[in-house]
Nucleic acid binder design. Sequence first.
DNA 1: ACGTGGCATTGCAACGTTGCAAACTGGTGT
DNA 2: ACACCAGTTTGCAACGTTGCAATGCCACGT
Lengths: 344, 344
Amino acid sequence: MPANLKDVAVRAGVSVRTVSNVVNTPEVVAAGTRDRVLSAIEELGYRPNVAARALRRGRSEVIGLVVPEIDSPYFAELAAHVVRAAEARGWTVHIEQTDGSGPRERQLLDGARGQGVDGVIFSPWSMTADEVSRRSAAPPVVMLGEQPGVGTVDHVAVDNRLAAAGATRHLLASGRRRIAAVGVQPHLRNETARQRLAGYRDALAEAGVADDERLHVPVERLHHQDGADAMRRLAELEALPDALFCFTDQLALGALRACADLGLRVPDDVALVGFDDIEAGRYSVPSITTVAPDKERLAELALACLDERMRDHALPGRDVAVPHRLVVRESAPAPATPPASAAR
Amino acid sequence: MPANLKDVAVRAGVSVRTVSNVVNTPEVVAAGTRDRVLSAIEELGYRPNVAARALRRGRSEVIGLVVPEIDSPYFAELAAHVVRAAEARGWTVHIEQTDGSGPRERQLLDGARGQGVDGVIFSPWSMTADEVSRRSAAPPVVMLGEQPGVGTVDHVAVDNRLAAAGATRHLLASGRRRIAAVGVQPHLRNETARQRLAGYRDALAEAGVADDERLHVPVERLHHQDGADAMRRLAELEALPDALFCFTDQLALGALRACADLGLRVPDDVALVGFDDIEAGRYSVPSITTVAPDKERLAELALACLDERMRDHALPGRDVAVPHRLVVRESAPAPATPPASAAR
DNA sequence: ACGTGGCATTGCAACGTTGCAAACTGGTGT
DNA sequence: ACACCAGTTTGCAACGTTGCAATGCCACGT
């Protein structure tokens, strides 16, 4: 049976309240008393009971991290940063997976209410900020990824449209003209995919390249398999694309695999750009050119938002931008290297 | 302010205790009363306060998952299974990262005591079962990975020695004779690495192949980079190895990348076998032959152990085996395809 | 000697829930 | 008519902590 405040108090010959003070506000306790209490704590191995503390204080110092799937490299890397940043604030992190299901997203968010989390970092798949805002009783929520309307929740994200345009421009600059967009999700209200498609179109329009809808490849999920399937479908077109802008690195890695199977050389025949800068893309052959969001910053900013929002529930929804950069690697090298078609 | 039992009780015109009964043991409440209470719960959006419940019951229905790093694909995939299996039991999962630091492992395990977790799934890096057992005040712990002594904690793992021997035998069967072991950790008490090395040696001995210590490559961590570094070091030997048994897929993927840089063909010049069966290894070029532990089963068995141990803290330490199989892919194909050296 | 102020310590109550055991209800058996 | 029983419902207390406000103590100034 673990020791409680009372056990420590008896041992140190002080009141329960004084022990509590030593634990929480040591500066108000006289040095002598403090030392005596600290030894008693040490001897008994006392640890505050978090349940009692949470009940009394009304805060648990626990936040929820709700993601589609923790085993997708992007979310795994993000989670690592979130856990580290949370720890720096003295918070612990509960992980929940929505498995990319809308109903489950709703259910988890509703459940969060009583689940003793002080706030939630939510990476939505199909829910929008509006919908989240309407669930009034829930604890503060910070959403990852852009959102169309500004509800009563914050959202923290890279400027997906700008980033996608940058990636596409990079491909255009190296002479590619038939650029596919892999990762479109027409049936879902997934704002991130929407923005990336918009950015892709911006860049095409800028360059005066026609936006060929046959090159928009929808996917169910964002796994390797979906990227591979997408590439195979593209290979069936009468004219092959000369580049793919994949909405995630995982899709790009899947497409890369399919290229190998199809006998297509990357980047010579097809250039690939991904998004997320996951570790695997740095070591693949060829390595993946990608849009790298500053994930550490993303996590830190999300927690900072949550922190403010926990202090003041009435805060209006905010829109926080996270820096990103294009990391040029082998799958879509810098323009100096023209595509094989131009070289011949 | 969220509704509590009292609010519901007032609304339904019953006592607090009856509402509690409806929530916890509906079968003892008369149907009429039950319906009235349920509507009140619905109307007020009542959710039990988990902190109060945990305080009163002495159980939080939260377990901790302590891993070196959640962003390593193996741990990410494992975590996904653990979270799903925990959810099926009505538990939530609290994630902590040790960053592969011994002191942090100890600190986190000690901290777990008061942290309101009912149990811990611990994937150790350098701590042994003996050490964990000695921390008496901690909640029940189930360790992932084999352990030398049987302390008072359970451990759930594949038979690493057997699995490693199988992987090595596969390489031997296809004619490889200079097989490197990548992932040795001599300075650490990492039992998993130890067992895999032992299995590798078993297979070599069996085949009458000398165990050349120059082919044991130590690594600091298990990242892609470490695998790539290992391969580069091996390439500096006077005689190149004709195969690598990498202790994790991530190391294998790193080695694969280094092979590309060194102009070595896989599997023609060098065959690769990994361990873990992470998703990325299924889509790399070439795909990675690997030892696949049944991760879903692993998670489920670990939780089952924890469950039993939570009911009976005095249970002796157990040793639970998880099934595994060798998945043959391109990086080390079946023996039918002899290595390039033999073919010439 | 006495009031004053600052510092250190304390007791009480409450957070929302559930274990326990008692109390109530209406119907049944004698 | 009365005791008894099963089926429902209830009140009280306690889990371990902390907010609040009050108390005790001591040295200082007048």
